[in-house]
Design a binder for these strands. Structure first.
Lengths: 213, 213
DNA sequence: ACTAAGTGCAACACCGATGTCTCACTTCTG
DNA sequence: CAGAAGTGAGACATCGGTGTTGCACTTAGT
């Protein structure tokens, strides 16, 4: 095995291809986790061979996507000040951010599932971040659910459902922008699900009028 | 239409095989929706060829399973008196029944998803039954969520999560029997998620704690 | 107990998805 | 501008899951 020196400089367009593939994969896999590489390449506007050039195997692509996803989650957790801000505020902000990422939540949800389908798990760091948030929410009395793991599951499950909700659903009515409405619904629903009284709670902040900020 | 292959008269033997296959399929597919027919046959203790004898194709098996599932849901909806009983009671009873069915909720969840994966939809009748229940819940002021479709999605999603929750989760503590604990958690969680304040449950438990912390 | 139906086993063809390779062509980069 | 790196297109091998068939054997029904 000769010490092969791979080019340190990746050509700009190659990097762009990689990005497009990952983006396309996120989109396509969000809808159908069993989508073909052909389908993904198609969505990315590239040839299937190119996908194989950038990613040695389907699994490699999945891994890379998972990694990217986890990084973004991690970034979101950080940006939402999950560890320092008032937990209810942090939850709302996090939800906003996650929706803003526009990443396939169906795929993201699969991160919580076992690897039987070939999907790796949510990174321990990201899980820990979420756990911290829910622990703080519990301590603050904003929710009654005790175990962070359960909260995480519920959060991700509802995230998926809200994401998949048709834009013209009556439950999305109140807010002006659609994203805001989704965040609103999501926020309300998780808090309720985890035993917190979202809208009328004195400790909770009420995002009724201007939810996006 | 029934997807089963029945030449003339079905031998009791064969019928039993069919049942075992359907049961095995429900179990296996609940964990991995992409499981092999081999895997299913294995679980049923039968040869793969036999599966093909009873069901012309994988899709046929899926259809039959879906049909069976829908029938059970329908039976549960009826048994829970969704149309006449006080809606909150009906919800609790329905949840009990559905958990009792021990059907793969992961698979059941897929019923709500699009047919991209080859999974057919929840039958209109069953959907209508659920819709009726949630409409009545809304009218009774037990929940604030307006659209039955959204309620349905949340209900099924949470059903899946509660089903997949490890038996030793701290959130399952209160009740004596595990099933009861799951029903309890499920009941509390859906009502909360849909904007209702979880009342004293029919089983006598008080799920809400005073926010003394 | 006799017969028809059902099953296990193994072999086989088939199909779709994955992964590899080559070659002509395009696009970066220095 | 020139060479290197990247790409598209297509052919090709491979692999796993599906569906079929034949044959020996077991089981149910009357």
């Amino acid at each position: 095995m000769s010490a092969e020196i791979r080019p340190k400089r990746v050509r700009a367009d190659a990097e762009r291809s990689t990005a497009r593939i990952l983006a396309a994969a996120a989109d396509v896999l969000a809808v159908d986790p069993n989508a073909t590489l052909e389908r993904i390449a198609d969505e990315a506007g590239l040839a299937r061979a190119t996908v194989h050039r950038r990613f040695a195997s389907r699994q490699a692509l999945l891994d890379a996507l998972t990694e990217q996803l986890n990084e973004r989650y991690l970034g979101g957790l950080d940006q939402a000040r999950v560890d320092t801000a008032p937990p209810v505020i942090a939850l709302y902000r996090l939800t906003e951010i996650v929706f803003d990422l526009k990443l396939g939540h169906r795929f993201a949800m699969e991160l919580t599932a076992d690897a039987r389908t070939g999907f790796p798990a949510l990174s321990p760091e990201a899980a820990a971040g979420l756990d911290l948030l829910f622990t703080r929410l519990h301590e603050a009395g904003a929710i009654t659910a005790a175990s962070p793991a359960w909260c995480r599951r519920v959060y991700l499950a509802l995230l998926h459902e809200v994401d998949r909700l048709p834009a013209d659903s009556p439950d999305l009515a109140p807010a002006a922008d659609e994203m805001g409405a989704r965040v609103e619904l999501m926020f309300r629903t998780v808090l309720g699900a985890l035993g917190g009284s979202a809208p009328q709670s004195p400790s909770g902040h009420r995002p009724d009028h201007s939810p996006s900020q």
